[in-house]
């Protein structure tokens, strides 16, 4: 009887260790080297020439998901300064206001910051192709986002993933009016 119990405990511990292995190995190195990432051919002459993710990404503001880099912070702090255009005649457009999406059921309201998005993207990337520029005109649901539409076009593929609920659902309903007033003030200051 005792013997069976001991082996059960041993196997449970063994099992837990195996299941936790990915976490342990991720902690050791956040970024896979190109030769071990499962998509590069380890025999390719490019290995050793191409920059390794850890070389570049370890120097940027850290995050807990995606590339493990907070890209917006990296841009705003000036750690990186990626080019905005190739053709000199291209107009670089930035918009500073916030949009509040209030039909979120029991989740906190979504604050969509135009500024963080237009630092990276142009208006035309989203409007009018994926988002109509009119309040209430976009029937966005979480299901559509999870399937890669609306916000899910980037979030879950290249921008921070959809497991980061509270980064979008960031405004508690009882603080909505206060948040809107603060947002207006901030936008006015940035527009000056």
């Amino acid at each position: 009887m005792l013997k069976i119990k001991c082996s059960n405990i041993f196997f449970t511990l063994f099992l837990m260790l195996i299941l936790l292995l990915p976490l342990i190995s991720n902690a050791a190195s956040k970024w896979k080297s190109l030769a071990d990432d499962g998509i590069h051919d380890p025999e390719s002459p490019a290995i050793g020439v191409l920059q390794e993710p850890a070389d570049a990404l370890s120097k940027l503001p850290q995050d807990t998901s995606g590339n493990m880099v907070n890209w917006v912070k990296a841009l705003e702090q000036g750690v990186i300064n990626p080019r905005t255009n190739i053709r000199p005649e291209t107009k670089v457009r930035i918009r500073n206001d916030d949009v509040f999406l209030e039909q979120t059921g029991e989740m906190p309201v979504v604050r969509f910051p135009h500024r963080a998005h237009t630092l990276w993207l142009d208006c035309k990337n989203c409007h009018e192709k994926y988002f109509i520029s009119k309040k209430g005109a976009n029937p966005i649901t979480m299901m559509k986002i999870l399937q890669g539409n609306y916000c899910g076009r980037c979030h879950g593929a290249v921008a921070f993933p959809l497991t980061e609920c509270d980064r979008c659902h960031s405004v508690p309903r009882q603080k909505l009016e206060q948040a809107k007033a603060e947002s207006r003030k901030k936008t006015q200051a940035e527009n000056k």
Binding site: T84, D122, K124, A157
Partner: peptide, 24 residues
């Protein structure tokens, strides 16, 4: 690799100026 390119270029360069659709 998106990570390599976005250190050097903003999304808008390829997805607006160059016309890459945002869907693999």
């Amino acid at each position: 690799p998106h990570w390599f390119h976005r250190i050097r270029f903003r999304c808008k360069v390829c997805h607006f100026e160059l016309g890459f659709e945002m869907r693999a």
